[in-house]
Design a binder for these strands. Structure first.
Lengths: 197, 197
DNA sequence: ACCTGAACACCGTTCAAGT
DNA sequence: ACCTGAACACCGTTCAAGT
């Protein structure tokens, strides 16, 4: 995980990992069944870093907290969302996580079917947002208004008028990642709340 | 794309593609700059297969149509969502797509900032759902109630009580993929509608 | 203008041989 | 019980040589 954090998930090869550990790549096979096993283990460990929801402060608050926690984990481990999405979530900590989320929703009064759909909708959004964000958001040290300015000037005259209007907006108002995430999350939680009434 | 559809995206290697085309792998470099260029081209082509929204029938309907169209494309090209998410969306057809979606939202009365957030929320959900679905949904030819039955019997006595309750539900009621997708999409569209009033 | 053959620097993985 | 060296079957990519 340290190696992935520092040099990117694509540079996590058995050979590079061996080098990092001062050992030959072949030696790793005494400790993991193969690279798939290694990646599954990473998924399991990174999922365990996401705070489990407790229903104490209301279900909406619990869902919001876990979404925010997941985002914090993705900030530390930029490879996490893609890796989790591309592999199953069948380890013990993934199951524990699902059980706790569903428990909060069931206790809140959602039927089993609706709780399952709500969980799926929320996680689709949380993981999906991270995947989009990693493609469009400027790097931490970049000025989002400058990026928008650039995009704007790269658009040919008359082409993509709506895109140009949005870019014009963001050339003035900085893009707020957390606010954008919260906007979508709020949409889902609001509708779920209305459903419960 | 045919090769990816038939044997999976991970089997799309320059060598396999060359074999498919009756040519050496090295020959491909006369037509694409490299594998990245090839994958970017695939993203561009597959995005072009998603129906562009027209605002004629109302913005909610337009958004729903494009989401359903994206899902239909993912059904034909199971590798598409992951590939699009893992690479940028900066080709002409991606830009055209974004422009059209944003145009519908702007004309519906959303401010530029809100339109951008709404677009991001919707696409996060649509792409995110596909990624989750590909992990949890049973294959087309599998009986979802049988799968739920299996999951249920694999859960140790007393562990994961909420998960067990959900599995019990799905052991009786078949899992409906389209309904689950529509549930989450409806949550977002409903809240966006309320925002507009 | 396009293709081929051969090469290079990489992968994951296996396995006999060492300690 | 764990590690190493060497090997195998793969990758993407380059480039001189062909037509």
């Amino acid at each position: 995980m340290d190696l992935a954090d520092e040099t990117g998930i694509e540079s996590v090869t058995m050979r590079a990992l061996g080098r990092r550990l001062g050992v030959e790549a072949a030696s790793l096979y005494n400790h993991v069944a193969g690279k798939d096993d290694l990646l599954d283990g990473m998924v399991e460990l990174v999922v365990a870093e996401i705070d489990l929801p407790s229903g104490d402060a209301g279900w909406q608050d619990a869902m919001r907290r876990r979404a925010v926690s997941a985002r914090a984990v993705f900030a530390v481990h930029p490879w996490a969302a893609a890796l989790i999405d591309s592999r199953g979530r069948s380890g013990p900590s993934s199951l524990e996580y699902a059980d706790r989320v569903l428990g909060v929703l069931l206790r809140a009064g959602f039927s089993p079917g609706t709780a399952a759909n709500a969980f799926l909708a929320l996680d689709s959004y949380v993981y999906g947002f991270e995947r989009q964000r990693s493609n469009i958001a400027p790097a931490d040290d970049e000025d989002s208004t400058a990026v928008a300015q650039e995009v704007l000037s790269a658009i040919p005259e008359g082409a993509y008028p709506s895109l140009a209007r949005i870019a014009t907006e963001y050339a003035v108002t900085p893009y707020d990642d957390a606010a954008a995430f919260d906007f979508g999350l709020g949409l889902i939680l609001d509708s779920l709340g209305a459903l419960l009434d």
